[in-house]
Design a protein around this nucleic acid. Sequence first.
DNA 1: TCGGTCAAACCGACCAGTCGGTCGGAATTA
DNA 2: TAATTCCGACCGACTGGTCGGTTTGACCGA
Lengths: 185, 185
Amino acid sequence: MNDRRMEILDAAEALVRERGAGHLTLDAVAARVGYSKGGLIHRFPNKVALIEAMIDRVIDEVDSEHRALRAETDGRANADLLAVIERERRMPEADADLRRGLLVAAAEQPDLLARPRAYIAERFRAVREQADDPVWATLLLFAAEAPGLFELMGLYELPADERRALFDRLAALAAGNADDEEAEA
Amino acid sequence: MNDRRMEILDAAEALVRERGAGHLTLDAVAARVGYSKGGLIHRFPNKVALIEAMIDRVIDEVDSEHRALRAETDGRANADLLAVIERERRMPEADADLRRGLLVAAAEQPDLLARPRAYIAERFRAVREQADDPVWATLLLFAAEAPGLFELMGLYELPADERRALFDRLAALAAGNADDEEAEA
DNA sequence: TCGGTCAAACCGACCAGTCGGTCGGAATTA
DNA sequence: TAATTCCGACCGACTGGTCGGTTTGACCGA
């Protein structure tokens, strides 16, 4: 039952990863998972439902990663920001392929972005709420998110060493002293 | 001659803006510009050529905006970074719609992203090269780019006042003191 | 001024392929 | 035996691209 659905989602993810969102067709998914199209439709009534399920699964995974990291930073100042930075630092490129595909697929059906949008808004809200200096926290948050976004769109990839240096700096800034970095300003 | 091509590009842009990249079909463009499909193909041999031309035009426009701002910051430290920040601060949302559409269209044909990718890489390289502290400059650069990227993907929109506050801070940090903000670290 | 010529510009019916979704029925399971 | 699961041929809509033909207008010789 749910196993079957998971198999289908696995196949769909693999397709998006390997061939891009444009090749995510019901026939291709069915062929890959060893189903017929009819069988596929039996589990997901239509393509939108399939994409929704894929997005839900990705978000659930991201969320659980975040919670795990968040548990480690609990109690410290800017706990959420630190967790976000750490998660972005570790994000494997393979995931970027998948997420890009999903976003491309979702871009045609903007309502599919509702869940990711809500998730991101909530995350950002929490970061700002925790911060002594919300503007500074937002700045660090955005700086931490940007590399992943650029990779997501296939527009830019920071060299590995500079990437590391950037996240080291971000982590230090977010950890040590949340609101006096630009005291000279 | 070129006027006609521009008319066609205008129509294609309007379509992407209003209805999304998924509705960018040759028939739709032809109908909008008052051409037949044959006449359209006479100007752009195929759809990829059309999208390429659209991307080229957008990049040219972005580049000229950047050059104009860059002229104002010339001579100052981190001149390119300051210009980027200022351009991002002013970017109208209308442009985001178009660029998102183009990116979605291009995502299916990754080679179409070659020009934007090269342009971005060059811009970032310049910013880092100018900086006394490249990591810090990269951090500010990414923080400045992220809001536009989130809008581009339709994933998040910073409230106007916080957006303003963020860019004010960014401009101040990039201008005043390029490498001692985190002296305490 | 006028008729003719030719290339560029443009037309639109048509083709071939793709894709989401349907449906009647077969197989499997409880 | 009844319900669930699955099959796969088929349909209809859409789209990128083709192609034979028509229109337009600049140029030319008489």
